[in-house]
Amino acid sequence: MNTYYCSDPHAFHGNIMKHCRRLALMTEADRTAFLEIEAAGGDSSTLRVSDESIDNMNRTLAANVNARVGPNDVLWCLGDWAFGRGSDYLANARWFRDQIQCRTVHLMWGNHDEPKIRDLFASTHHQTEIRDRGVKLTLNHYPMVTWNGQHHGSVAEPNIHLYGHVHALYQRRPEANPLKDFDAWPALDVGFDGHDYQVWSLEEILEVLRPRLEAFETLKRSRGQFDPFRGRGRSPETS
């Protein structure tokens, strides 16, 4: 049994294909129309993504999940499972869940998720802490500056935070992250948009975060602080 992580599939959400430039999942006609509007500096809201593109997105994401995540594995989705209006929402969420062969799927509540889909998942959470092969992970839909036990994290004993919501913004534009010490922040956006529409394995997560964990250890030593993201030093007054 292996555990995998993802976030923000946004099944049935046509506009997300424009907002996050999911060009590879669009039909050729939709992609051409979108790029023409973009090149002209126009308003992409005038483009309605076709049902064919939306169906292709849904089926591609589900196929990508199933290619890696087996029926007996565990999948954590960190929010924004599906989109829809009125009675369509539950039907869309259920359809997408039915495409996923993994029997144990956990959901972190995202801003597009509604309580009515709770029964589709093994469990639902706003925030939780788990261990995956000894690695401590704090899971949330939203990125957090600090989390429980973060200051104990190291390369040898990682304590990391996984999130979604921002759709690979910090990967595409690191300057958009407001944290001063972003390179030492042991957290990762595990959304589909930053990983070629694939789920993440723990090995892939640690590969990306190892340099940040190393930088975090260096930051603690250089500042003489055990918790630099809260400015906490080692003196009795600040411990």
Rank of each mutant, 00 (worst) to 15 (best):
H112N: 09
I54P: 04
K180N: 09
E175S: 11
E28M: 04
P115V: 06
N15A: 15
G191A: 10
R173I: 13
T128D: 06
N140I: 06
F216S: 03
W185G: 00
A122D: 11
R172I: 09
L206Y: 05
W95Q: 04
L188H: 14
N72Q: 15
H161S: 08
E28I: 06
A11M: 01
L202M: 03
R131E: 08
A82N: 00
G110Y: 10
L61M: 15
F83H: 14
L35E: 15
T238N: 12
M57N: 12
G153D: 08
T32G: 14
Y163P: 10
Q101M: 14
R59I: 07
I130Y: 00
H165C: 11
M17P: 10
N177Q: 12
K220R: 01
G231Q: 14
D193K: 02
R22Q: 09
R173Y: 12
E157A: 08
D80F: 09
R97W: 03
I37W: 11
D73Y: 12
W76N: 12
M57S: 13
T128I: 12
R212Y: 10
D98N: 03
M57Y: 11
E237S: 01
A82F: 02
N177H: 02
D8N: 04
P186M: 03
A156V: 07
F226R: 01
W147R: 00
C102H: 14
G84P: 07
V166L: 15
F229N: 08
H10P: 11
R223C: 02
A215R: 05
F96K: 01
E28P: 03
D183K: 14
D132M: 04
E36M: 11
C6W: 12
S45T: 15
R221D: 02
L169R: 15
L162K: 08
Q127M: 09
G110A: 10
N140F: 07
E203G: 06
R212A: 12
A176T: 11
T60R: 06
S50Y: 05
I205T: 02
N66Q: 14
M1C: 04
F229M: 12
C102R: 14
E203R: 06
G153H: 06
F226A: 00
L137F: 01
A63S: 15
A29L: 03
W95T: 05
M144N: 08
L219K: 10
W200S: 00
D183G: 08
